[in-house]
Nucleic acid binder design. Structure first.
Length: 629
DNA sequence: GTTAGGG
DNA sequence: CCCTAAC
């Protein structure tokens, strides 16, 4: 039943999560639980997989692949396990590298950006998406070879594993050479890779997965071997899983998980940052997409029931996006697992103001927050085939020949932040940063460094300093760019240069990614833009004419051409003006407002309040009268 | 979409 | 400035 259900689940019946998802808490503890839970499903799956393979006409190679996949999965876990003994040191190293390599992506230039996003505390290596993507088939193959060799010798002869040139596999570099076990099997390999890498599923299941997924695309040469391999592999996997998981797998995945998607995990810091509904919405949206993708992936069918669920889970999420693009092939009835690579991941340049007393930790957090917010604003995926961007989203993968192994290596993906996509290189000044009217001419001082910062002030000031400009490369890392002003008052401190924000507490450091796009990034707090004297005058005058309670009209009358002042802003400003006028001059802060103006504020406030009272009373009396009458 | 008011 | 309730 279980198996069947799973089969039904996947369009091809290939992908079913072999194991019911265990509560996260439980998942964490793998070894004990795993053996018990996984064994039976595993057997079932293996059996089914074997059947499928046999039935499949074109799946001659599948078996070896499957076996390889299983082995791989196992190996990843158990690189250090006993099995490794058989494997030459180099190989084992290679494997580890590979494994780590998945995480090792960060090492590459491309991932630098991503790494940036990662939580510093966690181990750098692994971008979820990248990681999954990075894993190369070769690795799988290799591993599979080893394991297969060991467990089933037949696989060797059959599978084109031999080609894998084990020697090569050693590639000292994290880059794993892609070795195709057999020609034409690339697809299979890819499928294996993906299946293996995919969400954290137990290795055991992998076999079933691969078998299910691979057959169509792969040309299996020896069906017979498959069953055997499966069985053996499986066992090996079982054996090794526990140990392995703790060993190799762990480091990579764990690190990845933690580091990579903090935003989704509910990092308190981030939550704080995105306190508003909009922000939450944005995050939910992202998560929702992710989950959707995840489900989709599941449909695609990868079930690796290993002990590493925990670890892989994260990977799964990451991979989803990419894999998702390949689902079309499955629509045709063929599931093809492919290895994907992220050619580039562009994150807008970050401009962050750093308080002098900032700590490394605060800087990291700041960067994390910024990157998180940027990423949450959305990512765009681009597909490159042989370096050429594929613009036609409606083109089927088959049309693009993406589902065939020969072209898989030519496919790359790019990730771009939606927020930055429209922005042009260079400094972008958000709409909010635009200066309208007289204010624009004022010298802008980023921060009044000379001025002692009250808590509030510090907070505000610190908030405005981050600017992100996509695609822009800049050498001044960590420097603060004063693109906009914080206070109208004096430009003395530094009207332009990079001025560190003197904030009393590094904690006050807040970042606001700035996007040039007119539409502010969702969830981003607007920069503080104190009302200038002319603005205050205009406001007072308008209110004197229209009264309080007609803020929309006030806006249209006095600030119609000022986009960054909403009627809510005007209302708030009036509120503060009234308050300011009602307190002693010594208690007032900020740019002083002429007493004359404040007097007018009070007068207008009194007048219109009275008017409102009268209206209310009149209304009430009218109602009373009417009711009484 | 506005307004009002608390944070 | 943000957020929300209430219109």
């Amino acid at each position: 039943m279980v198996v069947r259900k799973r089969l039904d689940y996947g369009s091809r019946g290939h992908q079913v999560p072999a194991m019911p998802r265990v509560p996260s808490s439980a998942r964490g503890k793998r070894s004990a639980r795993r053996k018990k839970d996984e064994m039976s499903p595993f057997d079932l799956l293996a059996t089914v997989a074997g059947t499928l393979l046999v039935d499949h006409e074109n799946s001659s190679n599948a078996p070896s692949i499957n076996a390889a996949a299983l082995t791989y999965a196992r190996k990843r876990k158990s690189v250090k396990a006993e099995q490794c003994d058989d494997v030459p040191p180099l190989k084992s190293m290679a494997v580890e590298n590979c494994i780590a390599g998945s995480g090792g992506v960060c090492a590459s230039p491309r991932q630098a950006n991503i790494c940036l996003a990662e939580n510093s505390s966690t181990r750098n290596g692994t971008d979820p998406v990248l990681e999954s993507l990075t894993v190369k088939p070769d690795m799988l193959v290799r591993d599979s070879v080893f394991s297969c060799t060991k467990s089933c010798n037949r696989a060797h002869g059959v599978g084109g594993i031999p080609e894998c040139g084990s020697s090569r596999s050693l590639e000292a570099t994290n880059q794993v050479q892609v070795q195709q076990p057999m020609d034409g099997d690339t697809t299979a390999l890819y499928s294996l890779v993906s299946s293996v890498d995919l969400d954290g599923r137990p290795p055991a299941l992998v076999s079933s997965d691969s078998s299910s997924g691979v057959p169509l695309c792969i040309h299996d040469k020896d069906r017979t071997t498959s069953p055997l391999c499966h069985a053996e592999v499986r066992h090996a996997a079982d054996r090794d899983d526990d140990e392995n998981s703790s060993g190799c797998t762990h480091p990579c995945t764990t690190g990845n998980n933690k580091s990579y998607m903090p935003q989704y995990t509910g990092d308190s810091r981030i939550r704080k940052m995105f306190a508003s509904k909009i922000r939450k919405a944005a995050r939910n949206k992202m998560c929702g997409e992710m989950s959707n993708k995840g489900s989709k992936l599941n449909l695609c069918g990868k079930k690796i029931s290993t002990t590493r669920q925990r670890v892989q889970r994260a990977m799964f999420k990451r991979q989803k996006p990419v894999r998702r693009h390949f689902t079309p092939s499955s629509a045709k009835g063929i599931l093809t697992e492919v290895k994907l690579r992220i050619k580039s991941f562009t994150i807008p340049e970050l401009f962050i103001e750093i308080p002098e007393n900032a700590t490394v930790g605060s800087l990291k957090r700041t960067v994390m927050d910024v990157v998180t917010s940027i990423i949450e604003s959305g990512l765009r995926v681009g597909v490159l085939l042989q370096g050429k961007s594929i613009q036609d989203d409606n083109k089927t993968l088959r049309q693009a020949r993406i589902c065939h192994g020969e072209n898989l290596e030519n496919i790359d993906f790019t990730l771009e932040c939606e927020a930055g996509q429209n922005s042009s290189p260079g400094v972008r000044i958000p709409e909010e940063m635009d200066f309208h009217g007289a204010d624009a001419m004022k010298p802008l001082a980023m921060v009044k460094c000379e001025e002692p910062l009250s808590e509030t002030k510090a907070g505000y000031n610190s908030q405005q300093r981050v600017q992100a400009s996509p695609n822009r490369v800049q050498s001044e890392h960590g420097s603060v760019h004063s693109r906009f002003e914080a206070t109208a008052h004096e430009a003395s401190a530094s009207s332009q240069a990079i001025v560190p924000v003197a904030s009393p507490s590094s904690e006050a450091l807040a970042i606001v990614p700035v996007c040039k796009s007119k539409r502010p990034v969702i969830g981003q707090r607007r920069i503080r833009r104190p009302f200038s004297l002319p603005e205050v005058e205009a406001l007072v005058e308008a209110v004197e004419q229209l009264g309080t309670g007609r803020w929309r009209d006030v806006k249209m009358l006095a600030f119609d051409n000022t986009d960054h002042r909403t009627y809510v802003d005007l209302k708030d400003k009036w509120k503060t003006l009234v308050h300011t006028a009602s307190i002693s001059p010594q208690q007032r802060r900020g740019e002083p407002v002429p007493q004359g103006l404040l007097d007018r504020v009070l007068a207008a406030q009194a007048y219109w309040s009275q008017q409102q009272q009268q209206q209310i009373s009149g209304k009430a009396s009218g109602q009373a009268c009417s009711s009484s009458c």
